[in-house]
Design a protein around this nucleic acid. Structure first.
Lengths: 205, 205
DNA sequence: GTCTATAGAGGGATAGAC
DNA sequence: GTCTATCCCTCTATAGAC
């Protein structure tokens, strides 16, 4: 935690959160890390390389932090609760913010695309596992693609965090609407065997 | 179209698309606009002001372009088709890309927050109108909040466009999964009156 | 309204002492 | 590994000629 490389990683994440991808620089990172600016180039060669390393470290750490929480999810309701929790903690923690900024930067800086995609993949793989569990005993199970849905969920979450920083009130109403919608999915999930069969046969067409 | 202010607006949008929010500058904008750099400050005072004006102009024009298309949407399927069309045209047009970059920038540049939120509101208001129509004759109608859902839809779309620039394959699978899910909603929408009543009574609890 | 020129700050990256 | 000092570039914004 006290090594220079570690300081640079946490400093980079702090700088992205504070200044956004448009405002990060070797100087702002070094200031946040409390480290000499030249050390960035000694340890990582270029600023992009450091951003890539920080992106990787952040995703690994954050997914690790939520692994147990994710493993305990048994219902859609619980998945939404974890989402809420993640969203609340975002105000102080800011992991999704970092990912969103890197995604925005990666659109026009192709050296950032691969590390950003890898970080996203860590999240979506985790979510895919959860969805696979949730869908297993659902009448929707064999119709929904867990991997694709996990990607959609991640993308939506990224979009919502960006929305939050621009129009918190509307972002909040979006979260609320999604929870209402999930209530519907729970009802479908909870149908008796007869209704279930009817629904499935309809879905087949 | 040939006035300096108009050139600056279209140049700004081009520069955002080409360089992202991290790479736009008075110089890159002036180059894209084919105009002297000092004119930015003469006409708009600061780069942020120009970004705000371009954001507004882009949203107005793009929503206008899709207004008739939106007005014709009668089913969820048709809404998804418009979404697909918007997504396809995004590769050459890039209006959502611009919005996403401005949202990313607005997280840490509070002068961008209000114009970006206003541009988003133009989109969500349009989508809200569509959803209100779609939900009107649906058993879900009185459970779902059209405004909140419209915000969620917009946020998800922004997230998906960012995803597309970083991992096109996974973004594609996300789109596909959402279309599958919409197929389910269509079935629910298409239930006979008896099943409908049963579903509604379950939802009430 | 448009141009050139430039001030003054901040940027990435390197050389070389320690 | 870490530091200072520095090169050279790009940035925003302004002054002043046309």
């Amino acid at each position: 935690m006290t090594g220079t490389r570690a300081k640079l990683i946490t400093g980079t994440l702090a700088a992205i959160r504070e200044h956004g991808i448009a405002g990060v620089s070797a100087r702002s990172i070094a200031a946040a890390a409390g480290v000499n600016q030249a050390l960035i180039f000694y340890h990582y060669g270029t600023v992009d390389e450091l951003l890539a390393a920080a992106c990787h470290a952040s995703a690994i750490a954050c997914v690790e932090l939520y692994r147990d929480r994710f493993a305990g999810v048994r219902t859609l309701r619980e998945l939404l609760d974890v989402g809420r929790e993640l969203h609340e903690r975002e105000k102080t923690d800011g992991n999704v913010t970092v990912l969103a900024q890197l995604m925005a930067g990666a659109q026009n800086d192709k050296k950032l695309a691969a590390p950003t995609a890898a970080a996203l993949a860590l999240w979506t793989d985790e979510i895919e596992g959860i969805l696979r569990r949730l869908l297993h005993n659902s009448p929707l199970g064999d119709l929904a693609d867990p991997a694709g849905l996990a990607n959609a969920v991640s993308a939506a979450f990224i979009g919502l965090e960006l929305y939050e920083g621009v129009d918190p009130h509307r972002a909040g109403s979006a979260f609320a609407a999604l929870e209402q919608l999930a209530g519907l999915a729970e009802v479908v999930d909870d149908l008796g065997p007869i209704a279930r069969r009817a629904l499935r046969s309809r879905l087949r067409r």
